[in-house]
Nucleic acid binder design. Structure first.
Length: 424
RNA sequence: AGAGGAGUGGCAGAGUGGUCGAAUGCGGCGGUCUUGAAAACCGUUGUACCGCAAGGUACCGGGGGUUCGAAUCCCUCCUCCUCUGCCA
């Protein structure tokens, strides 16, 4: 959530920044927010006064009872009862005002960073770098779903039977490749200082709210109705929420975590030719890195995370590019996001395989996560990135390294797969 | 899943209707003493909100209730422990 205190002192720049995202009537919304907050403050002042009086009377009664002079009590009791009615009224008003404020607040996305370019769609994203030295330029390259079928790496039919569309069954060398990638990604992250954890894949409401999936994007998550739990759409949710409602001492920074989890997404709507094979799934594997920093260091952390992700992709000998997302394409909670896309030469398409974001104080404000130093406390900055999402990486590897009778496995994976190529 | 017990400040642990934001101990921070350290002694030590400030308000697992007044009584939910059951 954006912070009202900051909104008050940066009103115009907030309006401008949010307009960049293409939100309509944002000025009116923000103004309403400030007015409601003014209202909230005066109600709070009023309520506190009433409570002060009530407390004073209650104490007086206590003292009178002690001294044994019971006659004066009934007057005081009547007065206190009257006060109580008033108190009830004001405190309800205050509560309602707070609810009103939150209703608006939770629907306002994060303020885009200054570097975020204007734009409405992915066409306006800025290409930061492109590395296509490895592009396989052969003619007649097959898309990965054909390769998968030919080499029997994934059984989509059985996935359909067991669960439904978008739930693949990885088989034999396909399963081994999957496991190899997970282990490789986890080991590399550990080498880079990310502490490995294995979180739950079901989360509660508070967690969904903390990272920003709820209430805005409830539709993306699978819900267990009876239990009020959600299947995680990304490990970002359980990992970041470990630190919900905590105060971290500055010396303990940076907090760096990595986790492998399956991810579950409903992805309602789009289903067709462009989401064939591994391009979009309801369940997929991902290794996620999460970092917590203070304001002074979060920019640098974002850069480091990007460099880490880039190195990882590079090591898999596939072509990739890096994009700076424009305001219109930026995620709800993020302030600045870099996407990494890998090239799938069989489809002649770029596939997003990692999204590295700095949420600044947006998530920490929702979950009350603070950094403390000798003198003061401040909301933490949270960051995360995929390192990496498996399916599209697999697609790119298969399409890039395909041959007629074999698929070459990138060298860094050899010790994890136990084989250098997949044969027919 | 059933029966019983318990949840208090960073930790341990008192408090069963009034002056309790909460004794005491440990830890932390500051100081005295010391060449230095330890010990001892003195002081200090939660979070959020309102207020220019003085100060005030709320919080004893969460929510609701009774009462002039609740850490304390009632209801409900959650979590943990013990026993029984079930299970990878």
């Amino acid at each position: 959530m954006i912070e009202i205190i900051k909104l008050r002192s940066n009103r115009n720049s907030y309006i401008k920044s949010l307009e960049k995202r293409g939100i309509e009537k944002i000025e009116k919304k923000l103004e309403e927010l400030i007015n409601l907050d003014d209202d909230r403050k005066s109600l709070k002042t009023e309520l506190d006064k009433l409570l002060t009086d009530s407390n004073r009377i209650a104490k007086e009664i206590g003292q009178i009872i002690k001294s044994g002079d019971d006659n004066k009590i009934s007057d005081l009791k009547t007065k206190s009862t009257q006060l109580k009615e008033e108190t009830k009224k004001i405190s309800e008003e205050l509560k309602n005002r707070e609810i009103d404020i939150k209703k608006i607040l939770v629907n306002i996305p994060n303020i885009p960073d200054k570097r975020v370019p204007e734009g409405n769609s992915e066409n306006d994203n800025i290409k930061i770098l492109k590395n296509d030295v490895n592009i396989n330029t052969k003619e007649n390259l097959k898309p990965h779903w054909e390769i998968i079928k030919k080499f029997k790496l994934i059984d989509f039919d059985n996935g359909n039977k067991i669960a439904g569309a978008g739930f693949p069954v990885y088989t034999n060398n396909g399963a081994k490749l999957q496991r190899a990638l997970i282990n490789y990604f986890l080991d590399e992250a550990s080498k880079n200082g990310y502490v490995e954890i294995q979180p739950p894949v079901l989360v509660n409401n508070d967690s969904g709210f903390g990272t920003g999936q709820l209430p805005d994007k409830e539709g993306m998550m699978y819900k267990i109705e009876d239990e009020n739990l959600f299947l995680i759409p990304t490990a970002e949710v359980p990992i970041t929420n470990i630190y919900r409602k905590t105060i971290i001492e500055k010396e303990k920074l940076p907090i760096k975590n990595v986790a492998y989890t399956p991810c579950f997404r409903k992805e309602a709507g789009s289903w067709g030719a462009h989401v064939r094979g591994l391009n979009r799934l309801h369940q997929f594997d991902k290794v996620e890195i999460v970092q917590i920093e203070d304001e002074a260091r979060s920019d640098k952390a974002l850069e480091e995370m990007c460099n880490y992700v880039e190195g990882l992709i590079k090591s898999l000998e596939i072509s990739y590019r890096k994009l700076l997302l424009c305001a219109g394409d930026l995620g709800f909670s993020s302030s600045i996001t870099y996407d990494f896309e890998v090239y799938a030469p069989g489809q002649k398409r770029w596939l997003e395989c990692s999204s590295v974001s700095n949420f600044k104080t947006y998530q920490s404000n929702r979950m009350n996560l603070k950094i403390k130093n000798e003198k003061s406390k401040a909301l933490a900055h949270t960051l995360n990135g995929s390192a990496l999402a498996l399916p599209r990486i697999v697609a790119a590897i298969l399409e890039t390294h395909q041959g007629d009778n074999e698929i070459k496995i990138p060298e860094v994976l050899h010790k994890y797969t136990g084989f250098n190529k997949i044969n027919l």
